[in-house]
Design a protein around this nucleic acid. Structure first.
Lengths: 135, 135
DNA sequence: TGCTGTGTATGCATAAACTCATACAATATG
DNA sequence: CATATTGTATGAGTTTATGCATACACAGCA
């Protein structure tokens, strides 16, 4: 299955203008929604995340605090952070809506950059396949 | 079809920690990708957006500037902002680089949202196919 | 008891985002 | 020509995000 190490390795930050703590929050929520993190699982340590992504401990804390406020995780001093309940009743639609939104944005960017839809689809498929090989 | 008014009415900002200019940028990109805004269309005026969403003119400008830098729109002083014509598919090499970059970004965002690669690919293909029908 | 790991907290500094106010410059129209 | 519209630009001020450093408090374990 997915270990904390794998979750950790999947985390990343980009310079898109979105605050780092928001990126972390969304990625961790995404991991829960996708079933990579299930209730009771121990989350990566705040320090692990901070070191791995080379960001500040307080920045990671900001993300974890948000998750705790929305009931997605439990913070236990001295022990660690654990996944609580599935964040949202995980509407089966949520994925579809998110996918659609992403698809539209990506298509527009591709068009603006002079990239054909075909090439874009090929690249995404190729990259995804490549990552699968690493397991 | 979709008028500027409809586009305007569909815009919205949320207190998610994501900068307002990023939210606007993504939403406008989404409208383009979905075909609600097509090349040559006039975009809502910066002031219209600022007033409608009760945000600052400079904040809207930030979003429009980003769109212009990525080639999605043309800013014309005194006239307005218009959806740009997609450039001719550039050199295969340059296109490949751009496609790869976009693919990476998109995959990362998909993972963050808990969206599978399959679903993402389906949606992009479906949207692209739909646009073909409009001719 | 002592050591380590983990979450909690503070202070200082820098940069970015946002708002508010006020203009200027180019275009279109009567 | 005068006026309105639209994008462009600047400066002051507030808030937030981030990094860096330094601790404190609780849990687990040898």
């Amino acid at each position: 299955m997915h270990t904390q190490q794998q979750i950790l390795a999947a985390l990343h930050v980009e310079a898109t203008g979105v605050p780092i703590y928001v990126q972390l929050r969304e990625q961790l929520l995404g991991a829960m929604g996708a079933g990579f993190l299930t209730p009771g699982d121990q989350m990566p340590t705040m320090r692990q995340v901070a070191v791995a992504l080379k960001v500040d401990l307080n920045t990671v804390r900001h993300a974890y605090d948000d998750l705790e406020k929305m009931g997605a995780v439990r913070l236990e001093r001295g022990r660690g952070t654990f996944v609580a309940e599935p964040p949202e009743p995980a509407h089966p639609d949520a994925q579809a809506v998110a996918a659609d939104k992403l698809a539209r944005q990506t298509l527009a960017q591709a068009k603006a950059a002079g990239v054909t839809t075909q090439l874009l689809l090929e690249r995404i498929a190729a990259l995804a396949a490549k990552k699968e090989d690493l397991r």
